[in-house]
Amino acid sequence: MFDFDPLFELEPVSVESIGFTEMARLPLGELMAADWAEALGGVEAELRAVLDFLAAETASGHQVLPTPSNVLRAFRQPLAEVKVLIVGQDPYPTPGHAVGLSFCVDPRTRPIPRSLANIYRELEADLGIPARVHGDLSAWADQGVLLLNRVMSVRAGAAGSHRGKGWEKITTAAVTAVANRRTADGGRPPLVAVLWGKDADTVRQLLSGTAVVSSAHPSPLSASRGFFGSRPFSRVNELLKEQSCAGVTWELPQVP
Rank of each mutant, 00 (worst) to 15 (best):
12 P>M: 01
12 P>W: 00
13 V>T: 05
13 V>K: 01
14 S>E: 07
14 S>P: 11
17 S>M: 08
17 S>N: 09
18 I>N: 00
18 I>Q: 02
18 I>G: 02
19 G>R: 01
19 G>E: 03
20 F>V: 06
20 F>K: 00
20 F>M: 05
21 T>R: 03
24 A>I: 07
26 L>P: 09
27 P>A: 00
30 E>A: 09
30 E>W: 02
30 E>I: 05
31 L>M: 14
32 M>V: 11
32 M>T: 10
33 A>N: 13
34 A>V: 10
35 D>S: 12
37 A>I: 06
38 E>M: 15
39 A>N: 11
40 L>A: 03
41 G>D: 08
44 E>Q: 12
48 R>G: 10
48 R>L: 08
48 R>Y: 10
49 A>Q: 05
50 V>A: 10
50 V>H: 04
50 V>G: 09
51 L>S: 10
51 L>V: 10
51 L>G: 10
53 F>R: 04
54 L>C: 13
55 A>W: 01
57 E>L: 14
58 T>A: 14
58 T>H: 05
59 A>D: 03
61 G>V: 14
62 H>W: 08
65 L>D: 08
66 P>C: 02
66 P>D: 03
68 P>N: 05
68 P>V: 05
69 S>H: 11
70 N>H: 10
70 N>I: 05
70 N>L: 14
71 V>R: 02
72 L>R: 09
